[in-house]
Amino acid sequence: MPKLIEAANQRVSGANVRAVHVRAPGSLKADSATAAADPVPQPVVPASPVQRPAPPDGYRRAIEAHRQATRPSRIDSGIAEAVERQTAAMRELGRRAFLEPPSVPDGATAPIEQDRVQRRRQAAATEAAALRRARAEHAARTQGAVG
C-alpha cells in the first residue's frame, strides 16, 4: 500500500494521499471527487461472448492421453449393488413408516382426532395404573411400619 500511495501522490500534482481504500471493480460509481482525479473517461466495452480459438492439436492429444492414463474405477460392483439394495430397503422402510393418510368423508372424524382420542385413553390408562401401583406401595409401607 505505501507504494500505491506514493505513486498516487506523484501522479496527481498537489495531491496529499494518506490512505487508499481498495474496492472491487465496478462496485462504486464515480462521484465528483473521483471524476476530477480521472478526467479521461474510460471507453465502455460491450459485453459479448468471448470467442476462443480452437485448442492446438498437441493440447488435445495431451488431454486424450491423460484420460486414457487415468486409473480405472476401483469400485467393487458387489459393493455398488449392496449399496443400491440398502438404499432401496431404506426407501421402503420410509414408505412404510410414513403412510399416506386415508381420505376422510365429509362429516367424519379426521384421523388426527381419532389418534388424539386414542392417546388420551392410553394416557388415562397409564395414569390409573401408576396411581394403583403408588397406592399399593404406600399401603405396603404403612403395613410394614405398623406391623
Rank of each mutant, 00 (worst) to 15 (best):
S77M: 12
R95I: 01
A140G: 12
E100H: 04
P46H: 02
R91S: 03
D76Y: 01
V44T: 07
N16Y: 04
L99D: 11
A8V: 02
P41E: 06
V50P: 14
E84K: 02
R135G: 11
R67N: 07
A24I: 10
A140E: 15
T34I: 07
A35I: 13
A19Y: 00
A110T: 05
I63T: 08
R119T: 01
A19I: 00
H21L: 06
M1L: 07
L93V: 11
S73F: 01
Q114C: 09
S27I: 00
P46K: 10
A110E: 08
E64C: 02
I112Q: 12
A36R: 02
R60W: 01
A65T: 07
R121K: 08
A145T: 04
T70K: 15
K29M: 06
Q68C: 11
H66N: 13
A37Y: 06
D115G: 10
A65I: 01
D38A: 14
L131S: 15
P41F: 03
K3I: 06
A47Q: 11
R95N: 03
M1H: 00
P39D: 04
R11M: 13
E6C: 03
A54F: 07
A89T: 07
H138D: 09
P2M: 04
A125Q: 13
L99R: 13
P25Y: 03
G26P: 01
E113M: 06
D57K: 05
E137P: 04
V40S: 09
P105T: 03
V20L: 00
L99W: 01
A139C: 15
S13P: 01
T142D: 15
V40Y: 10
A125R: 04
E6A: 08
G26Y: 03
L28Q: 13
N16I: 04
L93F: 10
M90E: 14
P39G: 07
N9E: 00
E6W: 00
A15E: 00
V146C: 13
Q118G: 15
E6V: 04
G14Q: 01
R141P: 01
V117I: 15
A145W: 09
A69P: 07
P49G: 03
G107Q: 01
R11E: 11
A37V: 11
R52D: 06
P72G: 09
E137W: 05
P111L: 00
G147S: 06
A108E: 08
P72K: 03
Q118V: 13
